[in-house]
């Protein structure tokens, strides 16, 4: 009898450990709310989200984060435009075309790329890409949308590529064989059979890549330039949300409206990435049902 009780206790201990992730998530949400909500004593939700002026240190301060949201979106969209073709095509190369030896090394390359610390990529953008952009296009600064987008794309490629590759790999072999048996070329098989079958998995990959890009901090902090205004060209500077938080938190007195405003930006960022992740999750569930049975 005592052994059974011991076993049950052990099981519940592990259960408590498994709950930690959920608890931490709850603590994250509650910390953000606790420190972020007080800002709405100084500014209405509408003016916060849609306000065009982010002058947190003026007197009186102005807490409109629309330029920051816009900044986040613009760099994320451009990064996605760059990263999706590269990432997906590389995944196709790895899963369908590359010989075994190259396949393994390429996977390692992508894993190592994923492992590069973001501050290193940001540094690279600052000292290499920025001067080059500035000189080539004769700009006042090379720290701008296009620079940030390129570096963010480098960060998002591993996510997009590795998840797409899983999706391509999961396409049942019998589909491919059936297609070849009908005399289709490899190209036709890939574009007409494999890609459509892996489409929802690839959408998951894209969503997760975007989530990664929109939440990335060091890159946009170091290379986006930091101007809290709606940009007029891709060579303008922007100040995406994470950059604002990271840059300003250090100089903000604890408990000030500015401090609360930065947490409130964190809330916006949290819910945005949550949305991307939930869409990705939804897409991946649809994708799991697309086995050989449903087709």
């Amino acid at each position: 009898m005592t052994r059974r009780i011991k076993e049950i206790i052990i099981k519940y201990i592990f259960f408590l450990f498994a709950l930690v992730s959920v608890i931490v998530l709850g603590l994250i949400v509650s910390s953000l709310f606790r420190e972020g909500l007080p800002v709405f004593k100084s500014v209405s939700l509408k003016d916060f989200i849609f306000g065009m002026e982010w002058y947190p240190t003026y007197d009186p301060p102005s807490f409109g984060i629309f330029p920051l949201i816009f900044g986040s979106f613009i760099v994320t969209v451009f990064a996605t435009v760059i990263a999706v073709p590269l990432g997906v095509l590389a995944a196709i190369y790895i899963s369908e075309i590359a010989p075994q030896a190259i396949k393994e090394s390429l996977k390692s390359v992508i894993e190592l790329l994923a492992g590069l610390p973001s501050v290193v990529l940001g540094f690279f953008g600052m000292v290499i890409v920025a001067p080059w952009l500035q000189e080539t296009f004769d700009l006042p600064t090379g720290l701008n949308i296009i620079n940030a987008s390129v570096i963010l794309a480098i960060m998002a490629i591993p996510t997009i590529s590795s998840i797409s590759e899983d999706a391509l790999y999961a396409v049942p072999n019998e589909f491919k064989e059936a297609s070849y048996a009908l005399g289709a070329t490899k190209y036709e098989t890939i574009t007409k059979i494999i890609l459509p079958a892996a489409l929802s998995g690839i959408s998951t990959a894209v969503m997760l890549g975007m989530a990664r890009a929109i939440g990335e901090t060091m890159v946009v902090l170091m290379v986006a330039g930091g101007a809290a205004a709606i940009p007029e060209s891709i060579f303008d500077s922007v100040r995406p949300m994470p950059a604002s938080i990271a840059a300003e938190m250090g100089e903000t007195p604890y408990g000030s409206p500015h401090y609360h405003a930065l947490f409130a930006i964190g809330m916006v960022l949290f819910f945005l990435t949550l949305m991307f992740n939930l869409i990705a999750d939804y897409a991946s569930h649809k994708f799991r049902q697309t086995g050989s049975a449903t087709l």
Binding site: V22, S31, L32, G215, I245, L269, T273, L274, F276
Partner: peptide
């Protein structure tokens, strides 16, 4: 299911938000 969703969501939380959480909590 709830635990798994929680883990997925946690994996998607941006690092700067982790920083805010660490600061606040």
């Amino acid at each position: 299911r709830i635990i798994k969703i929680g883990i997925n969501c946690l994996a998607g939380v941006p690092s700067v938000v982790f920083g805010l959480f660490g600061l606040g909590f």
